[in-house]
Design a protein around this nucleic acid. Structure first.
Length: 885
RNA sequence: GGGCGGUUAGCUCAGCGGUAGAGCAUCGGUCUUACAAACCGGGGGUCACUGGUUCGAUUCCAGUACCGCCCACCA
């Protein structure tokens, strides 16, 4: 076995297998069986792999590999998103470095540049996913702006327009002055900032005094067209209708009565700026107020703002307005105030509410069926709590601003004729035809990126064409995504799916863990807290990275992931060690079957305890891992396999069967043992494969196997007939005895090399038999040269004694004994047992416990208490004799 | 202002009605013919706090305190 390295070397294995899998077409759906389909959340073309992605797509691959092994016709469709603002920003930055802006290039040339960029650098992440081992169907890879996808987006727009669900409206929207575009409500983040609340005096024209209004944004006063107070506010009852002269501007504006004004706040009077505040806009509509726009799309004051201010940046204007008001003694007071500030989710620029004309989608009607299917349980959220998050949002849904003042994206398919009427068409040709020769001009704006991704599940399967894929793979099985895009994406896919296909897009929505940095902050490259998964793959291998992420993915709980420090990452190291453990256990098995006759990975029935036991344990593992995967409990699947493989298979089964398996002889008995150990290993590898694909394939190929790849091997099925409670119980006893002897040796400082004699005292005949049957094993694992079993321990001059599960254990020490140490050891043992016994006694003494607790619990407690009492007594006796030596 | 998570060993986290588990770290011992990235053994926790339900609560319920997310038009 010179050709098996002593440690697992991931890189060559990874680079070897992935191309083979891909070339052999294993990633494609196969057979006519039931389907299992996932469409991945398309990462941004501009993106590169981060830990969050690594986790997300690892989960995808685990489920796909698992289901593939279960015999499903599996399909995982990958792809990327054109990511409107994000991508445009990247290319604009590139241009800026060249000293030009997109306007210098013009729209057409700019788009060429973006496409060039996309082809050159886009989709890096896709290559990275291959390194992770993702078995996705690359031949069906999609892009949200590929030809077919454009058709889907146009189809959607046109059909919604025809149904009256899309409209053009003028209202106050969220405007990002840096991105220079409108954004939707959900793309706005809120942050509390320490700022000021300014109380301003607005004088009445008749000289009868003034009214005080409070504002956090004084510069907007230039656009005020009224002051409002609550109609029930006694302070203002007699003042409604009076005219105010707006300071600095000189405009005459009325004091109006409107419910919007809150009498509790400040003076109870509020300034009304219809063009720069959504609420004020509503007030303006109710009272038919003018709506002067005083801030432009770059965040600068407009001509309408008036001479001294026009052209100033909004924040400069704020200072200037305050100075000017101060000069006229119109500032009543300035208070410190915490202002909930709206920021652009993309660039964190302060959002400017701006009156503007945009395209909107009516959401109420689209939302209804999407609410119903979730309520009816047709679409299930995992963890369940996100159902409420989803429903709360959907029940209060507002119309969606879909137009963006960008160049990169799906151009809005609306053309305007000279007389201002709209022509909505799927293509320019269609629009021209509809125009019938009249000159037309296409809308300059593009659609929100999420408008196109909303169609993802059916669009990637070919919609609007009635493709075979759509027929076969829709609805998909599960959507795996982060909680931050439940509103932005998940909800919208359900809506479009219901609307266009009349069917849910996926049965389950699995919200996976958010990966945080060490301090519990969201992982972010800009904060420098990101960890590059490729660095970890370099260090420890792909399987280790995958496993380390999976083993931490519990119940949708967030994961804290530390950075690499001094070239090490303990969390992934743990998984790497496991990979190495698997490697070496396999190495042992391979070493002992190589060149031997008639070895298959097949179970051959055996009466031996270890054999019966490992078979039962393996069966339980199959059951638990399968159930865990089914319920998306990734950590449980990983943990169960880890424990089975390391603690049971390696620590006990291999050790117990070592003698036979590694014997030089080729007896039938040895052959059977080799088949069995190969069987347990091979089955374990199949269970591990979805989590650690490379390692398991590499080893599996070297084991006796059927089929071309572990990817196509059958997922193990649990078999109730393999359950063996007796074997488990006996094995527990065996382990307890061996551990106790080791414990005595260690505590008594007995040299590990020295061979001991072991005396066992028990009146329990089956236990006597058990010890005798497994005497050889005990000798080897406890390093004992002789075992004597009797009803009780014989009198021994000097010995260490203990008792476990009612079995007395005596180790003669022949003068080596350190009496003080032995007393200490036994005393500690007694104390431990006593504290346990006392707890049980107090429960048994409590009549309500005995009456009301389930009978088995009471029985168990009573039994264990009896056992403990007997053990304590014996240990006390031992302690007493120690003094006499 | 609402809603949702979290608080368990020095660290990172599982568990979730019968008086606590893992990995790492720590201490002691090992080249025991797969593995020192390993093996064997040990130590370490009033499971945030306060009440309630229960024979019994780390586990269920209510509240409190921190930490973190999400939603919300109060200027």
């Amino acid at each position: 076995m010179t050709d098996i390295p002593k440690a697992y070397e991931p890189h060559s294995v990874e680079l070897k297998w992935y191309p083979i899998w891909e070339q052999r077409g294993y990633f494609k759906p196969s057979g006519d069986g039931p389907t299992y389909t996932i469409t991945i959340p398309p990462p941004n073309v501009t993106g590169s792999l981060h830990i969050g992605h690594a986790l997300c797509y690892t989960i995808h691959d685990v489920l796909i590999r698992w289901k593939r092994m279960q015999g499903f016709s599996t399909l995982c469709v990958p792809g990327t998103d054109h990511a409107g603002i994000g991508t445009q920003n990247v290319v604009e930055k590139q241009l800026r470095n060249e000293g030009i802006s997109r306007h210098d290039l013009g729209r057409e040339k700019f788009l060429e540049r973006v496409w060039q960029w996309v082809h050159q650098y886009g989709g890096v992440i896709i290559t990275q996913l291959k390194r992770l081992g993702c078995s996705f169907e690359w031949d069906r890879e999609r892009f949200t702006m590929d030809e077919g996808y454009v058709a889907a987006v146009m189809e959607c727009f046109v059909r919604w327009w025809e149904a009256g669900l899309i409209y053009r409206g003028k209202r106050v929207i969220n405007w990002c002055p840096r991105c220079s575009t409108a954004i939707s409500d959900i793309e706005v983040e809120h942050e509390d900032r320490a700022a000021k609340l300014y109380h301003l005096r607005y004088p009445f024209t008749d000289g009868s005094g003034y009214v005080v209004v409070a504002t956090t944004r004084p510069e907007t006063m230039l656009g005020d067209t009224a002051v409002a107070a609550n109609p029930n506010d006694e302070r203002y009852k007699n003042l409604f209708g009076k005219i105010i002269r707006l300071p600095l501007v000189g405009r005459e504006i009325p004091l109006i009565a409107d419910d919007y004004a809150n009498p509790e706040f400040g003076s109870g009077a509020v300034k009304v700026t219809p063009s720069h505040d959504a609420n004020d806009f509503e007030v303006g509509l109710r009272h038919n107020l003018p709506k002067p726009i005083v801030i432009d799309e770059h965040g600068r004051m407009t001509e309408e703002a008036g001479a001294p201010y026009a052209g100033l940046d909004r924040f400069e204007a704020r200072e200037r307005v305050l100075e000017d008001l101060e000069a006229q003694d119109l500032i009543e007071k300035i208070e410190d105030y915490t202002v909930p500030t709206a920021l652009c989710a993309r660039c964190h620029t302060v959002i400017e509410p701006l009156l503007s004309e945009q395209w909107f989608v009516k959401m109420k009607e689209l939302a209804r069926p999407a609410i119903d299917v979730v309520k009816q349980g047709k679409v299930k959220f995992v963890p369940e709590r996100y159902e409420k998050t989803y429903l709360d949002w959907m029940e209060n849904i507002r119309d969606w601003t879909i137009s963006r003042q960008l160049w990169w994206g799906h151009r809005i398919p609306v053309w305007t004729t000279e007389d201002g009427s709209y022509i909505v068409a799927r293509t320019e040709e269609e629009a021209k035809a509809k125009a019938g020769g009249r000159p037309i001009k296409q809308d300059d704006d593009v659609l929100d990126t999420w408008f196109s991704s909303a169609l993802w599940p059916h669009a990637v399967l070919g919609w609007p064409k009635q493709t075979e894929d759509l027929e076969r793979f829709y609805p998909t099985s599960v959507l795996i995504t982060g909680r931050d895009i439940i509103y932005l994406w998940v909800s919208r896919m359900i809506m479009t799916g219901m609307y266009f296909i009349g069917e849910i897009p996926f049965h389950d929505v699995y919200i996976y863990a958010t990966v945080l940095d060490e301090q519990g902050r969201r992982m972010s490259k800009s904060l420098g807290t990101g960890v590059d998964p490729l660095d970890l793959i370099e260090l420890y291998g792909s399987d280790a990275l995958r496993f380390s992420l999976l083993v931490r993915t519990a119940r949708g709980q967030d994961i804290r992931f530390a950075p690499i420090k001094e070239g090490r990452h303990p969390q992934v190291e743990e998984a790497r060690n496991f990979a190495n453990k698997i490697w070496n256990a396999s190495r042992f098995v391979l070493m002992n079957i190589e060149g031997k006759q008639g070895i298959e990975a097949r179970w051959i029935d055996s009466d031996a305890l270890a054999d019966r036991w490992i078979l039962a344990e393996l069966n339980t593992t199959i059951e638990q891992v399968t159930a865990a995967l089914k319920e998306y409990r990734m950590n449980e699947a990983a943990q169960t396999l880890y424990n089975f493989f390391w603690d049971q298979f390696c620590d006990w089964y291999i050790e117990l069967s070592k003698q036979l398996v590694a014997s030089k002889e080729e007896t039938e008995e040895a052959r059977a043992a080799r088949c069995r150990i190969a069987y347990v290993l091979e089955t374990s590898l199949r269970l591990l494969h979805p989590l650690m694909p490379y390692l398991t394939e590499e080893i599996w190929q070297r084991l006796p196997h059927e089929g071309e790849s572990i990817m196509l091997a059958e997922w193990p099925v649990a078999d109730a007939s393999r359950e063996d409670a007796q074997a488990r119980e006996q094995m527990d006893t065996l382990i307890a005895v061996i551990t106790k002897v080791r414990n005595i040796r260690s505590e008594m400082n007995i040299p590990p090399g020295s061979r001991l004699k072991l005396f066992i005292g028990t009146t329990d005949e089956p236990v006597q038999w058990l010890i005798e049957q497994n005497a050889e094993q005990i000798k080897r694992l406890a390093r004992v040269e002789e075992i004597n079993v009797a009803a009780a321990l014989p009198a021994m001059q000097s010995a260490a004694r203990d008792i476990v599960s009612g079995i007395e254990i005596g180790v003669p020490l022949e003068g080596l004994i350190d009496i003080a140490k032995e007393r200490e050891r036994i005393t500690k043992e007694i104390t431990r047992k006593e504290s346990e016994a006392n707890g049980m006694k107090s429960r048994l003494d409590n009549p309500s416990f005995v009456e009301r607790a389930p009978r088995e619990v009471v029985e168990q407690t009573r039994e264990r208490h009896g056992e403990l009492t007997a053990e304590i007594e014996k240990l006390r006796a031992t302690l007493a004799t120690l003094g006499n030596i």
